[in-house]
Design a protein around this nucleic acid. Structure first.
Length: 435
RNA sequence: GGACACGUGGCUGAGCGGUCGAAAGCGGCACCCUGCUAAGGUGUUAUAUGGGUAACUGUAUCGGAGGUUCAAAUCCUCUCGUGUCCGCCA
């Protein structure tokens, strides 16, 4: 939710942001109209309530005939108060409905849609058939041949877009999560295991239901809960309705940093036919989510920090990648700016999103009512997130580190997290690889 | 799953139809006192929102939603959450 006071004073900025996002700018005028109306109706109610309170005090002090007389005279006022109350509720509802439809005001993101991102940098050589000296296999081919990814049995058991990670596949998944967690801890993040089933209020508060209804799983029957698509939900809800006290370091401008590990669930309803093979787009996966609460003025700096950490992880795994500045139209509604790191996929000659980090400024926290006390009053905090989905990384590692003989070299820095194994080889006649 | 209890300000906790945005304590802040430390004293200290340059002032908020009433933290209904005991179970 954006700040109505900001909209009142800077309607043009909000409109421009809507335009950059390829959304309707006229909603801003509509919002301001509803804001005026809401205030007018509210003032009327306030005045009636004041009168009622005043008379109420008199009634309390009186007795006998005088009291009865006054009671009779005040019935009409009570009716007016009740009507005014309904009017207030109605105008607030109209206002809120519109308010919630306006997205965060972008901060520096390029205008336009999905294709209009800006490449900030590209690091490392793209592996190609030519540079590798053989035709690179796709991750699903490698996964199957090495017996570490089993999508056939995955769909037998879980349905389409499910998979088994087996042997070193499973170790890679957990190893990557652990490696990322260690990096996060070194950078001041507190590890968290979070609920993956959350109550509707939390889902709504974090903005994941509404326009994204169809993307999340909802439990039917007795239990009205949602399966989270990211631990961002739990980590954002963690401090809901709280005042945050930031640690004193850096002149009181420090941040609260959490690294949540959880399974994530996505319905992928709108993705039919997209990335159907392998484990690029699946219904369930593991993710390490870095989540930061900080004072608003510090958000940019924290955003850069998150990006740096994500880049470091990719470098440590020796993957060619690029960083993009996501276009406004492709941002989530909470994000003011988003940077993605994309790894090169030699089998498809394209980049694949590995990480994503968003600066949500105060948008998310305003809705969740998360504030901090500061010298110049209570202020809504900023929130940021940076994401690391393990399955995507497995894809990138398999494809980029595959060898002509079909084996895959495990990057040196990852080895300590997968039991010291350095090479993924096809299974021998029996037994499970990488036990 | 069965039984009971409880949800009030930053925290603990009183209040159980009007004088209650709400006692008291803790914590926070400011000042005073004390040689230092420890202690002590005085004052101040909820959130949101409207009006006003401001001083100030109106209104709302006692888990949430409805209801009764001239008037609700207080009574009623529903709901959500939490705790304890028993049962079951990893």
């Amino acid at each position: 939710m954006i700040d109505i006071k900001f909209v009142r004073t800077n309607p043009e900025v909000v409109k421009a942001s809507q335009v950059a996002r390829q959304e309707d700018p006229n909603i801003v005028d509509e919002l301001l109209r509803l804001d005026d109306k809401k205030r007018a109706v509210r003032q009327e109610f306030d005045e009636l309530r004041r009168q009622q309170g005043e008379i109420g005090k008199k009634i309390a002090a009186l007795s006998g005939d005088e009291k009865v007389k006054l009671l009779e005279s005040v019935a009409e006022l009570a009716k007016q108060v009740s009507d005014a109350k309904d009017a207030v509720a109605k105008s607030e509802e109209e206002f809120d409905d519109t308010m919630l439809r306006i997205q965060n005001v972008i901060e520096g993101a390029p205008s336009g849609g999905e294709e209009d991102f800006v490449v900030l940098k590209e690091v490392g050589e793209r592996n190609t058939e030519k540079s590798m000296g053989f035709k690179p296999k796709a991750h699903w081919e490698l996964g199957e041949a090495l017996d570490i990814i089993d999508t056939k049995r995955g769909s037998k058991v879980g349905g389409s877009r499910f998979y088994f990670l087996k042997g070193l596949g499973a170790r890679l998944d957990l190893g990557l999560a652990n490696m990322a967690l260690e990096l996060a801890v070194e950078n001041g993040f507190t590890p968290m295991i979070t609920p993956t089933l959350v109550r509707p209020e939390i889902m709504r508060g974090t903005g994941f239901i509404g326009r994204h209804d169809s993307e999340v799983y909802r439990l039917g029957g007795e239990d009205d809960s949602y399966l989270v698509g990211t631990s961002e939900v739990a980590l954002a809800g963690y401090h809901q309705d709280e005042f945050i006290e930031f640690p004193e370091a850096n002149g009181g401008l420090e941040a609260l940093r959490y690294a949540g590990f959880s399974a994530c669930y996505r319905r992928e309803a709108g993705a039919a036919g997209k990335d159907t093979r392998g484990i690029i787009r699946v219904h369930q996966f593991h993710k390490l989510e870095m989540f930061v609460y900080c004072p608003e003025e510090r958000a940019d700096e924290e955003h850069q920090r998150l990006l740096k950490m994500e880049e470091q992880m990719i470098r440590d795994l020796e993957l060619p990648y690029r960083v993009i500045d996501t276009a406004a139209g492709d941002l989530g509604s909470s994000a003011a700016r988003k940077f993605d790191c994309e790894a090169w996929l030699p089998s498809e000659n394209r980049f694949l999103e590995l990480t994503s980090t968003s600066n949500c400024t105060t948008f998310q926290a305003r809705r969740l009512n998360i504030r901090t006390k500061s010298a110049d009053g209570n202020k809504t905090v900023a929130t940021l997130n940076g994401t690391l989905a393990t399955t995507r990384w497995i894809v990138a590692i398999l494809e980029n580190h595959q060898q002509p003989d079909g084996t895959v070299i495990i990057p040196e820095k990852l080895r300590p997290f997968v039991g010291g194994v350095s090479l993924i080889e096809p299974p021998t006649t029996k037994g499970v690889n990488g036990k």
